[in-house]
Amino acid sequence: MKGLSLFLGCLVPNRYPGIELATKLCLAKLDIDLEELKGASCCPAPGVFRSFDKEMWLTLASRNIVLSEQMQRDMLTICNGCFSTLADANRAIKKSEMTKQKTNKILKQIGKEVKGDIEIRHIIEYLYKEIGPEKIALHVETKLKIRVAVHYGCHLIKPTRDRDLGSFERPVFFDQLVTALGATSIEYTDKMACCGAGGGVRSSMREKSLAMTEAKLSYIREADVDCIINSCPFCHMQFDSGQEEINEHMKAQYNIPVLHYTQFLGLALGFPAQMLGIDTTIKKNRRLVEKIAADED
């Protein structure tokens, strides 16, 4: 198996750098061969750019893929959107010689050529398939005995014909990665529902997008959990900033901590919250960090 290159995308390095750092710390601790990918751009985002111009979408995605091909490494994504774009583009290139040639004709202008000889991975399916929950459990230093609402997000698992992760109706792989750290994954209504951000809806119809988020948050609150664990910085932002926006505009009072799985894993592997960018100055997250620390004592 090839080593990995880390594809950062936009939201992780440019809004939630803690997730970037948590990913690097966790993978180093798990002894997974990971290198920086230098000079990548936006994946480009599937909901918007694939909607606008498929050729451009495929071309920019292919440039990103080439960067990892040149390192002879599979590419690791930590965002469902990046995973969707890069995995789908990579599949299109591998599947059709004509698509590949057409794309390479444009890439030639920057002296690059896509070969289609690497794989695109998502951190959740990578950890599940290549390491497994049992092995991850062996690395746990701090058992996180808390109640968790797992949010898979849409593009990690759908379209299922392309993802090889089973049915999207009641998946368990992500829950198993969470319970491996000592936490309990709580069932809640509409667990597999979308966060409301995708498809360009958050950017163009913010209120409607937040109405979807509010519905999901209301079910999560009913389930009385300590935090939401996600696998995607876009869902992360929709739940994190979204709660503030909902509280402000809909006169609600949501206060649920939100963590990307890499940050949660980082806590379990013994890294302090400050190192993982779990902003301890944010009230909702401070409460969570205090609870975990109290459980440890």
């Binding site: 599937p46 593009h155 979308c194 409301g196 995708g198």
Partner: peptide
């Protein structure tokens, strides 16, 4: 433009 592309 109201579709979040959730694929359900």
């Amino acid at each position: 433009w109201m579709c979040t592309t959730c694929y359900n």
